[in-house]
Computed example of a mutant assay.
Amino acid sequence: MLRIELSGQDLALIRFAPQPAPLVELKLSLMMLRRQDSEQTFGRWRRELRQRLPVTTRPLWDLLTPYRGPAFLDPVSPDLPSGLDAVRTMPTSQVRACLEEMWAQREGQEPVPRWLRDLAQGDPATREQLCQSLQDAYQAVLGASWPRVTALHSAEYARYALNTAEHGVVGALTRLCAGSRLVDGVWEIDAPYRRQVASAGRGLLLLPTFHWTCAPLVADKAQDPLLMVYPAGPGMPLMPAAAGEDVLAPVLGNTRAHTLRLLGYPLSTSELAGHLGISLGAASTHAATLRAAGLIDTVRAGRAVRHERTALGTLLTGGVDLDRC
């Protein structure tokens, strides 16, 4: 079981990452690639990915196991370039400490590769080699599917915000991970391992991941808020969107995704039905569903009823509207 101690101050400092973190998603994707479970859903994805990973990514396999990887590989960053810069400039002492911890866990196994010893000593060329490996792995594993990761993250962000508004912070937390509970200031989450961490007034940063299917993971770095990464994906690999496909369609369905993009500006139900090419009743039903999810507002002005996106709806669409002309 994972147990996270949260004081009243910690609950007040809980934040949800506003966008996915490329290197965190990459590291967990590569760990998923190394696992052997869930073969029915991940088997084909693993086989195809192994074939297209370039040889420059080979050094990463000296660092990753199916369930572990050093913390210096996946700093939380809003985009890939800033993440790679964080890896590139991370103090050698931190990199060495992570490697020494990893070597201690693998004691008695294969000898440590020479390039990892150079990395631990702060060799600049070796550090650049590592960054190139990460960049090439990202392009092979996530590059084509990243728009879908971003859409799913926005949907999860909106879900958490709505749960917080309706059920409070504690209710929203316990709904992130099925079966979890807050007992006497401790968030208890079912996990196949035993670990207890204390936020100690630093707060908590929540980050969903869409390729990991195991229990949540916690990073505890001194002075930083605790980072809790939890699985929020569909339980299968994310495939790139087909040409012309709206990345929101797998999240909302085609018609509701289309509706949400149309409502960047107010439309009546009849106008919405006309743009969508559906009946008045169907348009009303879709609008009601989006309204219940907090993604649109419906306002009556005299005899007219008009629908428009909320801030959450705009977040989910990335501010992209459809041309209604």
Score class of each variant (00 low, 15 high):
I278M: 14
H307F: 07
A215P: 05
A304W: 14
Y160I: 08
A120D: 10
L290P: 01
P54M: 04
L162I: 13
Q94G: 10
M90L: 15
A304T: 13
V141F: 10
Q132M: 03
V197L: 15
D37Q: 01
G274M: 14
R181S: 14
Q9W: 11
A104N: 08
V320S: 08
C325F: 11
P208D: 02
L260V: 05
A165M: 11
A293N: 06
L13R: 15
P225W: 14
Y138N: 05
L53D: 00
L60C: 00
I296R: 04
I4T: 04
P20N: 01
V141R: 10
S145N: 01
R195T: 02
L252R: 06
L206T: 02
A155V: 04
I4Q: 02
P18Y: 09
S82M: 09
H167N: 12
I189V: 15
M31Y: 11
L162R: 13
G313F: 08
T65Q: 14
D74R: 14
L162A: 13
L116E: 06
D85I: 08
M31G: 02
H211L: 09
I189D: 00
P91E: 07
Q9Y: 10
R68L: 13
V183L: 15
W103H: 14
L267N: 03
L263S: 05
L205S: 05
L13W: 13
A151M: 05
L322P: 00
K221G: 12
R159K: 13
P75S: 10
D85M: 12
V87L: 05
G244Y: 10
P59N: 10
A165Y: 09
G313Q: 03
L280V: 10
I278E: 03
R324G: 02
V87Q: 00
L182F: 15
G318L: 08
G244T: 01
L130Y: 00
L26T: 05
L99V: 09
F16P: 00
L204I: 04
E48D: 11
G185F: 12
V170C: 06
T314S: 13
T213Q: 12
S133I: 06
A86M: 13
M228E: 01
E308F: 12
L73Q: 02
G235R: 09
R52N: 05
A104V: 04
A241H: 01
M31E: 09
N254M: 13
P234Y: 07
L99A: 03
V149M: 04
R309N: 01
A158C: 15
L207P: 03
D297M: 12
D246R: 05
L316F: 07
T92S: 04
Q51P: 03
R50L: 12
G122Y: 11
Q121K: 15
T317N: 04
V170R: 15
V251A: 00
G185L: 12
A232Q: 04
A304G: 10
R88F: 07
H286D: 06
R324N: 06
P231F: 12
D321L: 04
G171K: 10
L2G: 01
L33M: 07
T56M: 07
T285Y: 14
V320H: 11
